[in-house]
Simulated scan of single mutants.
Amino acid sequence: MASGAATVIRRCQLYVPGSSMRFLEKSRSLTVDSVAYDLEDSVTPLKKPEGRANILAVLNKDRVPGIREQAVRINPVSSGLALDDLTEILKGKNLDCLVVPKVDRPSDLHFVTDVLRQKLPERHAPGSTNPVKIVALVESARSLMDLNSICQASPYLSGLGFAAEDFSLDLSITRTPGLNEFTYARSAIVTAARAFEIPSALDLVSTTFRGEEGRKFLQDESENGKRFGFNGKQCIHPDQVSVVQDVFSPSQQETEWAVRIVIADKKADAQGRGAWTLDGKMIDVPVVGKAKAIVAKAELCGMDVKALQEKFKDEEPK
């Protein structure tokens, strides 16, 4: 299995314009879960061939330790450019993921899936452990109404992302700082991701981040997304990455709570107890499941879980 592609964690997916070799090179110095080299919105029509060549060159370079996943955002299937994009970038030896924009119907993902199987049969044969994954962007009313079918359209679907700007355009919505106008769409995306066991639910891009005030706004917006159930966020500038990845990582307090529960639950299980208490609160199967998920994510995020397990090894179920 290719390094960086084995486990899916996308606290942040950062878009980098494919037409700028300078930005592409700079991105290789970052520490970020997922970089999406962009062939869509940030690349003008005349620059598309150059963008493909630039991205292919980067994908054929040795991996860098700071980037877990190398993705490419292709042009929409409906644009007629997607096949040219895929024909070039699927030659890249270190491609992990495709971000597919404007997925309005299941057939968009059927098309990408068919191309993957045709161009890279060895990675997409039955039982293959390292296929190119797909993140589908929800950008329209049609997409939202067809989420159920879209989520079942490809075995390689690994994430859903909310593209707020195009969604606003489609529905004549005015975006406000509180994001209340997107409540239905954001909730629908998170719910669909959970229902179909899709690992990533990526919240909208934040356009504000400069200066202390911008940083605080980005943090608040990221925390809002986490409360909604998103487990990551799309970013458009390297300065956004650390704030976003920090918010979508388990906090020290969360991780300690989870470790204590997992340790005590093993002991409760051995005693035949299905429910018990910790800090005066009842702990049962759903709470233990949540705690195990937090511990697993903390490990992926590089937290020293083993030290916490040692610290709380004597935790007992009450």
Rank of each mutant, 00 (worst) to 15 (best):
S3G: 15
G4D: 13
A5T: 09
A5M: 05
A5W: 00
A6H: 13
I9R: 08
R11P: 12
V16P: 11
R22C: 08
R22G: 03
R22P: 01
L24S: 09
S27I: 01
R28M: 11
R28S: 12
R28D: 13
A36M: 07
D38I: 05
L39Q: 04
E40S: 01
E40H: 07
D41T: 00
S42T: 12
P45Y: 00
L46E: 14
K47D: 15
K48I: 13
K48P: 05
K48E: 06
P49F: 00
E50N: 03
E50F: 04
R52Q: 06
A53D: 12
A53I: 12
L59G: 09
V64L: 05
I67H: 03
R68Q: 15
E69I: 07
V72M: 11
I74M: 02
V77I: 15
A82V: 05
D84C: 01
D84T: 13
D85G: 14
D85R: 14
L86V: 15
G92D: 09
L95K: 13
V99F: 04
V99G: 04
P101V: 07
S107N: 15
K119A: 15
E122P: 12
S128Q: 11
P131R: 07
V132R: 08
K133S: 15
A136Y: 01
L137W: 07
A141T: 08
M145K: 09
N148D: 14
S149V: 00
S149D: 13
S149W: 01
S154K: 04
L157R: 05
F162T: 12
D166H: 02
S168D: 00
L169P: 00
R175C: 06
P177A: 02
N180T: 11
T183H: 13
R186G: 04
R186E: 06
V190W: 04
A192D: 11
P199N: 08
S200T: 14
S200Y: 05
L202K: 07
L202C: 09
S206D: 08
T208I: 11
F209R: 05
G211Q: 01
G211S: 09
R215G: 15
N224G: 05
R227L: 14
F228A: 04
F228C: 06
G229Y: 03
F230N: 11
Q234C: 12
C235E: 03
C235Y: 02
I236Y: 00
H237Q: 04
Q240F: 09
Q240T: 10
V243F: 01
Q245G: 07
Q245N: 05
A258N: 03
I261Y: 00
V262H: 02
A264G: 01
A264S: 11
K267T: 09
A270F: 00
G272L: 05
A275T: 01
A275G: 02
W276V: 00
T277Q: 12
I283K: 06
D284G: 08
G289S: 13
K297V: 14
A298H: 08
K306G: 14
Q309I: 03
Q309P: 01
K311A: 09
K313S: 13
D314R: 12
P317T: 12
